[in-house]
Write a protein that binds this DNA or RNA. Structure first.
Lengths: 336, 336
DNA sequence: TTGTATGCGTTATCAT
DNA sequence: ATGATAACGCATACAA
């Protein structure tokens, strides 16, 4: 079914059908009704190839707003974005990046506003009212917004691309079950309370853990390398019999450094998240046994592709894209 | 750069440039040379959106030939193919399947010949001269051939989509290192000698294995459930102190069944490949500790998408697509 | 051997 | 308020 055929069915011109389809107004109500009926009855959907040809001429920009500076995890996300951009440049698509430092909602909102002329937007949202409002505004303008890595569930975002944090925690717990036959005596670095993902990881971890393990110590509320380093040192000093560490926060390598500096390498098995270079190094040195990974490359890549998909097919509501929860050990490390 | 612009550059018509581009002949040699020079100099590549519009009207078929019946691994591959087909049907693409039983080169060649009118072909090739020839014929006709799951390296195939078997073996070895702290006493089911992937897995496994483990027994040349079951039974009877099994072949669940039937559950940790339903069940029962997976869904999906990519961009030589080597344990099982 | 005309489906523009 | 027409880039049938 094409616009042409619909037009013929109704005895109107393509232009009229186009005005109805794209809500341009200037159509007599009864004509509009007739056209809508025909569209409905014929089950019309835009031809995606024709649309791609047109869209490519518009050179649409996909805006990307990330709080990623000084965060090695996002180096990988950016690689995925760059790869998707390369794939899509043949389709006339461009990516415009706004990379921020830290978590400042006002700054993020400002970046969003700067990019409001984009055709679609990918954002790692801060949980704040102005961001929620910004997303709503964009959605109303017809600009689809995709949340990346962090969701903002009760917002007008089109879909979420990212990890399943709870399952990540579960999987980490499963690895402890497998790797600590004789029972783990655990120290836990729980991560920042404010970061929902960290809390979900911890919950999953605890849910997966076998009875035979015990938790000797737990540190809360930290997501800073220096704090984690100091915290783990004192934790190990107080509990000399700890033989496993679970780090839900981002600074697993700092925790490992504390282990090394206290001469406890080989006695403690560490489990953490994300194959960033520091963690890879600690895995090579034998401190980290396994990392649970959330496929940062693919997150970036898939978010951009999903944006393009929405540009081509404005109507089709897409589902969330959850990364597989992958386990990385020494032998299947590929990059970093 | 468009055909139109190239034509203008050379002072010829679009039609002439088209004839040069698509090797239709009927062009004066010196004209052709001039056009080629212009194409080269301008770095012309076909506009992908324009090409997609044209290609979609041709309703191209992608032929798929798999030796997959009675092989649960391929049920997942087929799901990936079906998903890709759904994504691409908007682009006018259709998939035509030829599903064979067993490994009969003549039958496979016949299926290929049946599909020779396709625009592109995806095949899980048997290592035989007639298949190699068939691929060469298709390539000569301009039909790109993609090898799926099994490669046929010195053939005219455009690219390979599948697993890195050696790394899969390495990773399995790594899991044994992690899960058998006190040293594994291994029984190995090496798989069929004729299947290159099995041999590569075994090599990787042995390369990764720590010194502290020992190999007590090894079964060669089997890829049949019944043989594996019987073989593992007798292996366990001879070596009562085996505490770990590595199964490179497809029938890991049969090996586990032997373990269960001999009342040795809980004493033996099994490691195998592929999250097929039988293996999932054995993982839930605690016999299998970890499975190394080669992402069958994605294999099917990516092969079809790669085929489409080649249809759009005939010239661009694509690189092989290797699956990530993923580790599946109880907690990160998603399907099956 | 070469050029011209037309079509694909969507969108933008310019008349009416 | 509506229709006619041109444009995107590729492909092809047909005319010269």
């Amino acid at each position: 079914m094409t616009i042409k055929e619909i037009a013929a069915m109704c005895g109107v011109s393509r232009g009229t059908v186009d005005r109805v389809l794209n809500h341009r107004g200037r159509v007599k109500p009864e004509t509009e009704r007739a056209v809508r009926a025909a569209l409905e009855q014929a089950g019309y959907t835009k031809n995606i190839a024709g649309r791609a040809l047109t869209v490519s001429r518009l050179a649409p920009r996909i805006g990307v707003v990330l709080c990623c500076l000084d965060n090695p995890f996002f180096d990988e996300v950016l690689k995925g974005i760059a790869q998707a951009e390369e794939e899509l440049q043949d389709w006339g698509v461009h990516v415009e990046l706004r990379l921020l430092r830290g978590y400042d909602a006002a700054a993020q909102r400002a970046a969003m506003d700067e990019l409001r002329a984009c055709a679609a937007m990918v954002i790692q949202p801060i949980n704040a009212p102005e961001i929620r409002d910004g997303i709503a505004d964009l959605a109303e303008q017809g600009v689809p917004v995709i949340t990346l890595n962090t969701d903002l569930a009760d917002s007008q975002r089109a879909l979420y691309v990212g990890a399943d944090y709870y399952r990540g925690g579960l999987t980490a717990g499963g690895m402890v079950n497998l790797c600590c036959e004789s029972g783990a005596r655990l120290g836990i670095v729980a991560g920042a309370r404010a970061i929902l993902g960290h809390a979900q990881r911890l919950q999953g971890f605890l849910d997966a853990l076998d009875r035979r393990h015990q938790i000797l110590a737990r540190m809360d509320g930290e997501d800073e390398p220096a704090c984690i380093y100091a915290g783990v040192r004192s934790m190990l000093k107080r509990h000399g019999d700890i033989n496993a560490l679970f780090v839900a926060a981002a600074g697993c390598a700092s925790a490992c450094q504390a282990v090394l500096d206290m001469g406890m390498a080989g006695k403690i098995k560490a489990f953490g998240f994300d194959l960033v270079p520091e963690n890879a190094a600690m895995m090579r040195r034998g401190v980290i046994q396994a990392l649970i990974c959330q496929q940062p490359r693919r997150q970036g890549h898939d978010a951009i592709r999903a944006a393009w998909q929405l540009l081509l097919n404005e109507s089709a509501a897409q589902e969330n894209i959850l990364m597989e929860t992958s386990i990385c050990i020494l032998q299947n490390m590929t990059d970093a």
